[in-house]
Structures are given as C-alpha cells and as structure tokens.
Amino acid sequence: MSVSFKGIDHIQLAAPENCETQARTFYGEIIGLMEIPKPENLRGRGGCWFQYGTQEIHVGVQKDFIPATKAHPGLLVEGLDDFRNTLLEKGIEIKEDTPINGRSRFFVSDPFGNRIEFLEYH
C-alpha cells in the first residue's frame, strides 16, 4: 500500500439540535473563526462549519448529544497570552492543566460542554 498522509482536513464536534446560534457566537464571534458554507447537500442536517487556518471545524447536530469532556481538538495559536486575556474579557472560563514541555496551553468549554485546547509552542 502506498499512502502519504498530508494533515487534518477537519475536526467534527457534536452539539445538540438548534445549536447554530450558540455555535456562531462562540466559534465565530468569541473565538474569531470564519464561518464557511456547508455543502448544499448537507445543510438539512443542521450545524455549521468554520475555517481554522487551512483546516475546518464542523459543528454537527447529534440527537442524543453528550459533550466530549476528554477527547478534544488542540488548536495551535500564536499570541496565546493575549488570546487568553481576550477570552477572559468575553467571560469565557479558562481551565489550566499540566504543562507540556515546550508548549503553553489552556482549555475552554464550548457552549455545549465540549473541551477545546489552545496551545502555543515556545
């Protein structure tokens, strides 16, 4: 088999039905990601998509939704301390965790209880 892995295209996060307004507020307005249109054939499923660098975050509706409190995306950023302060100013609770050598990091929960990690290499 000849295969070459190139990277991650997208991360799928689950959310409850009728999540779109809260997802747009959190991921678009608070976090600052750009919303991108879902393909026409998937729009009836609900949810919304956001661009993160060259990757995407897909917030999808799950009927029996349970938040991911352990599994999570780790989003690499520049200016982590400034970003932390911005989130605090917007009322987002920051959760610190055990440091990883060479990386600063913290966690937040999205409006649905999903864990999101932000990291910066130093």
Rank of each mutant, 00 (worst) to 15 (best):
M1H: 09
S2T: 07
V3R: 12
V3Q: 06
S4V: 13
S4P: 00
F5S: 05
F5L: 12
G7S: 08
G7P: 05
I8N: 07
D9G: 09
H10M: 08
L13N: 05
L13D: 03
A14S: 15
A15I: 03
A15K: 03
P16H: 07
P16F: 04
C19D: 00
E20T: 15
E20N: 10
Q22T: 04
Q22W: 02
R24G: 06
F26L: 06
Y27G: 12
G28A: 08
E29T: 13
E29C: 02
I31Y: 05
I31E: 04
G32E: 01
L33M: 15
L33D: 10
L33H: 09
M34I: 09
M34K: 15
M34R: 15
P37H: 06
P37Q: 09
P37S: 10
K38F: 00
L42F: 13
R43L: 05
G44P: 01
R45E: 06
G47L: 08
C48D: 03
W49C: 11
W49A: 14
Q51Y: 02
Y52Q: 04
Q55E: 13
Q55P: 01
I57K: 13
H58D: 05
V59C: 08
V59F: 03
Q62H: 12
K63C: 02
K63L: 12
D64Q: 14
D64T: 12
D64A: 15
I66C: 03
I66H: 04
I66R: 09
I66N: 02
P67C: 06
P67V: 06
A68E: 11
A68Y: 03
A68N: 11
T69C: 02
K70H: 13
H72S: 13
H72E: 11
P73T: 09
G74M: 08
G74I: 01
L76C: 05
V77Q: 07
E78V: 08
E78D: 14
D81M: 03
D82T: 05
N85C: 06
N85R: 08
T86V: 00
T86D: 07
T86W: 01
T86M: 05
L87S: 06
L88V: 06
E89I: 00
E89F: 00
E89N: 11
K90S: 12
I92Y: 03
E93P: 01
I94L: 04
K95S: 11
K95R: 14
K95I: 12
K95Q: 14
E96A: 09
T98M: 10
I100Y: 14
N101C: 03
G102P: 06
R103T: 02
R103E: 03
R103L: 15
S104L: 08
S104H: 08
R105D: 06
F107K: 09
F107Y: 15
V108R: 05
V108S: 09
D110H: 05
P111I: 11
P111T: 11
F112V: 09
G113D: 00
R115A: 14
I116H: 03
I116C: 02
E117V: 05
L119T: 15
L119C: 13
E120K: 02
E120R: 02
Y121R: 15
Y121T: 15
H122T: 06
